[in-house]
Design a binder for these strands. Structure first.
Lengths: 402, 402
DNA sequence: CTATTTCGTCATGGCCGTTTACAAATTAGT
DNA sequence: ACTAATTTGTAAACGGCCATGACGAAATAG
């Protein structure tokens, strides 16, 4: 039951299909796509035994998917076992592509990912967007988009959808940026500004980063906590292979978990929130540095040089993070905690005190903490892959669009 | 989809059905049951429009369910609108029954609930079980079980399954009590001790209490936090209409969320855990009372009398709860927080400081806190209803058993 | 009293996975 | 090298299930 939680579209194609024969067919097409995608390469017979249908049924499903350009026949597998070798199937590398876009505080990026998960085209543009009005920024993004789509088309791909990662809070309609403090945008409807050639989804960059970790990361099962720090400190809770968004979409506000109940006042109204100890501003102040451009790089650089004040500041931030995460881990019992976004770059100096605190406060074996190897690329990749997942989740929907 | 999270059986009947015509039929039978159950009384045509099938299809489904004794025809609805009145259908009150059992620290209880949710038979036995070995306790429980099953059979019901709520940690097999500190039981396989006449499920009483709130409570949607205190302080996280159990089944350990990072040492290895401020032992000590029997009743009585020390102790506990819950609410953004179990009885003195703390530390509108009206009956009712839900979730499975 | 609306059912038809059978392609055994 | 066994993919017949359309039944509206 349950609708895929990564679907930001409230009524997107991922909703539960009616239990009629047509719906069954659509779901079975999806199951074939997922099976082939998971293994990279699979024969019809292998798909059949994996999803519990007969070879005959899978044959017709595969035929339909090949005709739609979603699956490709790679030819006979090299025989290793007894019996006739199967014919290898693979997800198509020339069909639909997911277009991901990222609006960062000081860059814009777009990429195209094919159904196999390969990045096939990309374009980046550096330059501070802080405080610029949405229109010119979106115009530049549209230009990058045009380039990437053109390049993808040159490779035989066609865009199945666009997903945009933004550093801010997005409304439930998955189109409107409610507020993005670091851009100084408020109630901006990106759907009205972006070209409407294909389905659009807008979501928070931390959410897309977590989804990227779920789909592309190593070792993470379906249950983990993805912590990142771009605008404040956010934790995305991934449960049962989907994002936990909360009733109002506000879930994951790790930054305002109380760390010291009588600590310094916070803008949220509370006292001693995590952000007062591990937030960017707090860490810079503790390190004795001025806020400026590329603050994370500055911190990492000074820490690498051995700057004692910076190292102490990061150690203290790690400790505060460990305290807040202890609460989260006790509440959710995740398989692991993953540090992503800006935190990934600072991990060498945050991790020791963070893990020490988590260990100390946990009765049994502590929850393992790892660092995302996706780093700053997470949100962009997650966005593009979210489109790819939507195709895999309902191949019939895109097949009839082309 | 998603498999129902309330299913404690790892491979129980609630697992995802294969997408074949038989599976489709079974799911549609379930959808009819749920539709009728949700409205209490519904015509075939109303069911059809509600679940998106045709009247003809629903007719055959209903026929099958009536033949199986899961649905009853109540006769023609009283006509209020134009057209031929429908024939009212209701979930059967004479078919399968869910048997719930509770092993409390100082009582045993068993009840039978019919598919309509009515309690049709019950038996309770008071007496301290703390420290008694499992065998005699289970023997007594089996006797109560016999009585309740006999009484239910007298009313035309037959037991479809047994669910047992225990005050302790239960293994993933849903049969073995790993440890129940208040009973002093360890690694006790209840499946071997209880009669094996019908499917058995064992789970923590806090989990069943939360499920009872989900299924029977008022105003709670599918997302809330159910806080109870029996063995330590536990929070059950209910998300998307199911229980969040965690990777190892340890989710919801609110009692060990850090409230004051440098506070007193806790048995878990941490410092300043919630349990050090709001745990039973801590509150009794702060109130200047000795631990004994019925400690909650004692606290509530003294507080009602106006005992200043007790009231202060409860006020402080509420404050600590509020701090810990602030973190949980920030992380999960639930629709509400529900106080259940022993906390429900102490709510009048806990709530003011708890809510004040939660309000103070939240930016927007604070998450509403309510008190369970199920109170101490929650776990027993939740257990019995979990069996009923399993029947509604896959009526074909029980139909073929009878 | 007739027209209209809605309900439940029946016969028909189409869709879809299964069953059964068979040819093709490989390995294992002699 | 040749046969037997095994596995793959496909085709035809089969059966189950929901949709469609029509019809009688039972109410209301005028």
């Amino acid at each position: 039951m349950t609708a895929p939680l990564h679907e930001a579209h409230p009524s997107g194609p991922g909703r539960v299909l009616p239990d009629t024969q047509q719906g069954m067919r659509r779901r079975n097409l999806a199951r074939v796509m997922h099976a082939v995608n998971a293994e990279g390469q699979l024969s019809r017979a292998a798909v059949a035994s994996r999803i519990g249908l007969t070879r005959a049924a899978v044959s017709t499903l595969v035929d339909e998917l090949i005709r739609s350009g979603l699956l490709e026949e790679l030819g006979p597998e090299r025989p290793g076992r007894v019996g006739r070798p199967g014919s290898a199937l693979a997800v198509s590398g020339h069909g639909p592509a997911g277009i991901g876009a990222e609006i960062g505080v000081d860059h814009l990026a777009v990429c195209a990912v094919d159904l196999r998960g390969q990045v096939r085209a990309r374009a980046i543009r550096h330059g501070a967007n802080r405080g610029r009005s949405p229109e010119p920024v979106i115009d530049e993004l549209t230009e990058l988009l045009r380039q990437v789509v053109a390049e993808a088309k040159g490779e035989g791909l066609w865009p199945a959808g666009l997903a945009v990662a933004v550093p801010g809070l997005v409304a439930r309609d998955a189109r409107t940026v409610v507020r993005a403090p670091n851009l100084d945008w408020h109630d901006t409807d990106l759907g009205a500004l972006l070209p409407a050639d294909f389905p659009l989804t807008v979501d928070n960059e931390a959410n897309f980063g977590a989804l990227a970790e779920l789909w592309l990361g190593e070792g993470t099962g379906g249950d983990f906590l993805h912590v990142s720090a771009e605008i404040g400190i956010g934790a995305a809770v991934v449960v049962a292979g989907g994002l936990l968004r909360g009733t109002r979409g506000f879930a994951g506000e790790l930054g305002h978990v109380p760390v010291r109940p009588e600590g310094p006042r916070c803008a949220c109204g509370g006292r001693g929130c995590l952000e007062q100890y591990a937030g960017e501003e707090a860490v810079l102040r503790a390190a004795g540095l001025e806020p400026g451009e590329d603050r994370v790089g500055l911190l990492a650089g000074r820490a690498a040089e051995g700057d004692a004040a910076v190292r102490r500041a990061l150690r203290d931030a790690g400790k505060a993070l460990g305290i807040a995460l202890t609460g989260a881990v006790n509440l959710l019992d995740p398989e692991s905690v993953v540090l992503g976004g800006a935190l990934a770059g600072l991990a060498p100096w945050l991790l020791p005190s963070l893990e020490a605190e988590l260990d100390r406060r946990t009765a049994g074996p502590a929850c393992p903490v790892s660092v995302s190897r996706l780093g700053p690329q997470g949100p962009l990749l997650g966005a593009a892959h979210s489109v790819v997942r939507a195709v895999l989740d309902d191949p019939a929907a895109v097949a009839e669009r082309n």
